[in-house]
């Protein structure tokens, strides 16, 4: 009997270890886990609250900023042409910064180096607006993270963090979003955790927010100490999540419950 029980425990643990990444064909955007009303709110630009933010971002795109009085548009021109697909490629290795940066950091590098303008704070209205405006130009485009050896370490770190248990509740991202998506956590459907709609309007926040803000929410739920905004850990996690969602269509600005 004892040996039988021990074997059972062993087998169970083997099964748990092999609970694996989601097959490409089974990937679903968070959109598919939402009710029809919320889906309609996202799809209709006139009811999507994130579009107000996109409009603000469009005005910022045209506005001269900083010592050189240059606007984003001064260099990049028509965003609908020049920014198409760009957000779908971030985070990416930036040669100037010498590290992997996310879209918000890329915008701030432009401000620093080309506009001579002060950096925008994480989660600030203006950075969310500019990010949302740029990301909007990628709506419908497939996520296309480059296969870049210079990002390999960050990607590996992101994968490790995604699978690592943390916090008083000792959970990992993977336990919910790889192994138990579609199940109910306290009555709420667990999505697969894809990053294809950020920045997005979250009904729970009654506001726009970044992927990092969303990740902090999850970490607080796990009773873990959240990583800081802009930390290498968050950039690595963002990169891994985008890689994990490679090929999925961008929805920014998405609406989520």
């Amino acid at each position: 009997m004892k040996i039988g029980a021990a074997l059972c425990v062993l087998l169970l643990s083997v099964i748990a270890v092999h609970a694996a990444e989601i097959a490409t064909a089974d990937r679903k955007s968070g959109f598919e886990f939402m009710g029809r009303d919320t889906q309609a709110m996202q799809t209709d630009d006139t009811s999507n609250p994130g579009m107000l933010n996109v409009l603000d971002g469009g005005a910022l795109w045209e506005r001269p900023e900083g010592a050189d009085k240059k606007a984003c548009a001064s260099c990049h021109g028509d965003a609908s042409q020049r920014m198409k697909g760009v957000a779908a490629r971030y985070p990416a290795f930036d040669a100037t910064a010498g590290q992997v940066v996310d879209l918000g950091q890329r915008i701030n590098l432009c401000r620093r180096d080309h506009q001579k303008a002060p950096e925008l704070a994480y989660e600030s209205r203006d950075l969310l607006a500019l990010s949302a405006f740029v990301a909007r130009q990628s709506r419908g485009q497939p996520i296309a993270i480059a296969d870049d050896a210079r990002s390999a370490n960050a990607l590996m770190q992101g994968r490790k963090l995604f699978n690592e248990r943390m916090g008083q509740l000792n959970l990992s991202c993977a336990i919910c979003h790889d192994d138990n998506w579609g199940q109910k956590l306290g009555g709420t459907s667990i999505p697969q955790g894809h990053p294809n709609g950020y920045p997005l309007y979250r009904l729970e926040w009654q506001a726009m927010g970044s992927l990092q803000r969303r990740l902090r929410n999850c970490m607080i739920g796990m009773r873990a100490e959240p990583f800081s905004y802009g930390s290498s850990e968050f950039i690595a996690l963002e990169l891994f999540l985008m890689q994990r969602a490679q090929g999925m269509a961008m929805e920014s600005p998405a609406v989520r419950p």
């Binding site: 916090g167 009773r223 959240p226």
Partner: peptide, 10 residues
């Protein structure tokens, strides 16, 4: 034991 990165309040 065996837990990491626990929030300070916990």
């Amino acid at each position: 034991d065996g837990v990491v990165r626990v929030a300070p309040s916990f």
